[in-house]
Design a binder for these strands. Sequence first.
DNA 1: ACTCGATCTTCCAACGTTAGAAGACTGTGA
DNA 2: TCACAGTCTTCTAACGTTGGAAGATCGAGT
Lengths: 351, 351
Amino acid sequence: MAARAGVSLKTVTNVVHDRPYVSASTRARVKAAIAELGYRPSLAGRQLQSGRSNTVTLAVPRIDEPYLGALAHAMIAAATARGFTMLIDETGRNAEHEALAASGYPGHGIEGVIFSPAALDPQNLAYMSHNVPMVLLGEHLAHSTADHVAIDNVQSARDLVRHLLGQGRTRIGFLGAKPARPSSVGGLRYDGYRQELASAGIQVPKSWVIEAYPYTREEGETRAITLMPHLAEMDAIICASDLLAIGAMRALRRHHIRVPDDVAVVGWDNTVDARYHSPSLTSVASDLPRLAELTLETLIRRIDGDRAPGVSYVVPHELVVRESSARAAPSSPTMMASNRDGVGFETRSPG
Amino acid sequence: MAARAGVSLKTVTNVVHDRPYVSASTRARVKAAIAELGYRPSLAGRQLQSGRSNTVTLAVPRIDEPYLGALAHAMIAAATARGFTMLIDETGRNAEHEALAASGYPGHGIEGVIFSPAALDPQNLAYMSHNVPMVLLGEHLAHSTADHVAIDNVQSARDLVRHLLGQGRTRIGFLGAKPARPSSVGGLRYDGYRQELASAGIQVPKSWVIEAYPYTREEGETRAITLMPHLAEMDAIICASDLLAIGAMRALRRHHIRVPDDVAVVGWDNTVDARYHSPSLTSVASDLPRLAELTLETLIRRIDGDRAPGVSYVVPHELVVRESSARAAPSSPTMMASNRDGVGFETRSPG
DNA sequence: ACTCGATCTTCCAACGTTAGAAGACTGTGA
DNA sequence: TCACAGTCTTCTAACGTTGGAAGATCGAGT
């Protein structure tokens, strides 16, 4: 509506889009009018005309979980860099809300969805998403139209087991398994744990493996308590997420079990919490910026019309070793020693 | 476009909006067609026609900071409950980006902005925001057109001091002061600290008060190190945020200073981190759902046309006492005793 | 039969932007 | 003087939705 520069709308459009066939003087006059009036093209009008909104949605269970917050941060950065607006949608582990996300938010002009599912079966999700391009995070899904981006969950679990074995710990439990759904994140990590133990010729009692869901501190604390009867025999617990590990460590602390002296604890996600917890927590780190870049790149390629079958991308991971899995103490140590001397040491081994 | 029910667009609109003067049979026929075609009204078209988008923005420095994540979670819930879409914008403590937020994102159809400023002076913000209703979070601003929602920062600081005094601690330092800007969050909290100390007749050396910004774990750790020379004389540190406190505690741990045995540590925000840290952290909690409700209610009233001068709302707070500020040990305790026995105790006193 | 009112449906312009088609102006060469 | 090409501007329809105005249908009252 800034046709107050004495020109028509089309000329304004041509100036805004840096089109040729506009005289230098007219161009300057229009730009001056735009600046003077503070004119900004209406995205609604533009969207209506072009059918494009340059908006994608990140659907996560809760934005206030550390890993998902870090993920959102990386995704927003990646989207912004590509001129896209990132809309955050909290599904709250609610199946109905996840179905809405999977359907692409009809009517909202969303051009793509990045989905971290929690409640719905991924099979259903893929079935639903046929209007809008979708990238699945975390849980893998074979023969889907949706793309998939994640770390190698099996291998990272094997890395953790090998790390613990290298520290002289062989009596390793697992918290957060999901054997009933082998393709889920919990299922894959549990599988890697089993594979590596098997290849090392180690057997563990079934009672050392327990399920947990969701992967929260509360759940970690609650479930760890059920492990207590067997803890005297164990020397390490692999937790399927940092939050589970932090919750578990709280339970251990309550029961006067020392970490890492009595039991080592490790997790996944390398949240900031893992770094600042006392003791600091050994964790599997994924390259979040890289993951976000790859996800956006994939999604935008789909938005731009790529209709090839769904692809699964693997993002590299690495093991960040910290206090919680320091070498097992050979003899009875003074209580605080390991807790203190180890502060701040942080070694990395490629995953 | 769903005029395939054999009726016109207007009739569809009337059905969608539950308008009268549509026969029951026609209504049913249209609804069937809508369901069959999966028709959803285009928000872009609707926005263009009505001028309303029902979208507000929450502008925060970073979404992956625990307090801001929790804030976003509460805000999304409150907005959704009112039929609004909440767009998260990360300003990254960048002045230019904050200016964009303060200007209301022209062209995007944003109807209101909830702003947690970090880089820009609030005076500038209020000056900029004249197109779009705005609610400021945290930092107060007198004589502004923007509304303001926050806890009573001065009183909460006094509560903390009184709590520490009640535990027998009188040699109290402050981390995260901002005396240069008395109306800032850091300035107000520091002011409350000074007031309560003064009314108790206690004087502390200037070296016990240090500034810190931003309120991150890293900054807390770094700044706490500069306090080390004076720590032998102190028995408590008030940190202007939980993250500062967690960072500070890491530095203390590195220097073999026990919390709370040697020094008590307290913070603000009552993040989940505070609850699960070891030792768990005493913190000032604000009622986030209430804060979000109040903020949205205020913002929507402005969107609906209220042009009264800016109002400042106070949200109640409470002190959540945890391990990090347990009563000072009268004599040399065994090292781990207080760290262990206290786990899980959590008392609350109204703020 | 005709009018009137009640009930229901259709027509139309508008929101802001855009691209294609068409128009106007300028200067050059025949 | 006229045709023509080159350069720049204006006209127009369309995206999907909406509300007001106008049109159609029907039954009832005269």
